[in-house]
């Protein structure tokens, strides 16, 4: 029972971390119809930035600075790698995203020299506590709460602010909203800023549970978060969050059984099943093809 409790708890926590990444995917996809392959690597870079900065400055300076730098990175990536291709076919933009991901991984490899970097232990959230007798870290409890708070704030932003309305308009119809005077570029930049901000927060929580950061450590969480976004219905924020929690919990439960090798494969099997059975996901909107 204790084992099961701790498994479910860490599953929820992992799901929350995936949720924070998945929102970035789902928002970008909703607006640009682009799988931002570089998103997982931005998440990894956020982890590395934290590693490097926490050695030279106190934690309460390095956390906000890390978030600001990551957001800046997301902004720059969009301006440099995706904006020039706005009128190009979708495949070119996706290839550009893969190129950025390759670049970020190689940069990280160069910076770290291939050595795994130990993540700074952040006071309070890496403390151990007991819940229903199961030992766990504070971060496990903090994550779902933080995720819910951030999602509520985000929903408020999207439903009630000007930029949120613009975002919804752009994701509905790119060209018409442009004709209506929506500043496409600033809306897209805002999307990337929000997405990378959440990824930065996610990396803070994620790497607290994992001792080290390596250049490849963004790739798999990134892909899984994307699967979560597809599972929940791409373009839908609550869908992404629910999808992420389901995937996080399933993955941790499988890790506890004999089939631990398949914990990653399960996510992708789920993806193929959902794409075949209900390609629009749980909350996705139905789209029709026009000739």
């Amino acid at each position: 029972m204790e084992f099961l409790t701790s498994q479910i708890l860490s599953g929820i926590s992992l799901g929350g971390q995936y949720a924070l990444i998945a929102i970035g995917y789902t928002m970008v996809y909703g607006i640009l119809r682009l799988i931002n392959f570089a998103h997982g690597d931005v998440f990894m870079v956020a982890g590395l930035l934290m590693v490097y900065m926490s050695t030279v400055m106190p934690i309460y300076v390095s956390i906000p600075l890390m978030i600001v730098l990551t957001v800046l990175l997301g902004f720059v990536i969009e301006r440099a790698a995706y904006k020039p291709l706005r009128s190009a076919p979708r495949m070119s933009v996706m290839i550009s995203a893969i190129g950025v991901s390759y670049l970020l991984q190689n940069l990280a490899l160069y910076a770290t020299g291939g050595q795994p970097k130990t993540y700074a232990s952040i006071p309070w959230i890496s403390n151990t506590i007991h819940i229903f007798g199961a030992p766990t870290r504070v971060v496990t409890v903090v994550t779902p709460i933080l995720v819910i708070i951030l999602v509520v704030l985000l929903t408020l932003l999207i439903n009630h602010t000007k930029i949120g309305i613009a975002m919804r308009a752009v994701s509905k119809d790119f060209e018409t909203s442009q004709l209506m005077g929506v500043k496409i570029n600033s809306v897209i930049s805002a999307t990337f800023v929000i997405g990378t901000f959440l990824a930065a927060v996610g990396s803070l929580l994620y790497f607290t549970n994992y001792p080290t950061v390596v250049p490849m450590s963004g790739a798999l969480p990134g892909l899984k978060a994307f699967v979560a976004a597809v599972f929940g219905g791409i373009g839908s924020i609550p869908g992404a969050v629910i999808g992420a929690f389901i995937i996080g919990i399933c993955e941790t439960l499988i890790k506890g059984t004999d089939f631990a090798v398949f914990s990653d494969a399960f996510t992708f099997a789920l993806l193929i099943i959902i794409l075949v059975v209900k390609p629009t996901g749980i909350f996705g909107e139905k789209t029709t093809d026009k000739v």
Binding site: R33, L34, I35, R90, M94, L223, F226, V227, V230, T267, F268, A269, L271, I272, L275, P279
Partner: peptide, 9 residues
């Protein structure tokens, strides 16, 4: 892109 991610998976 769905095909891309499914084959990747």
């Amino acid at each position: 892109d769905y095909l891309a991610i499914a084959t990747l998976g």
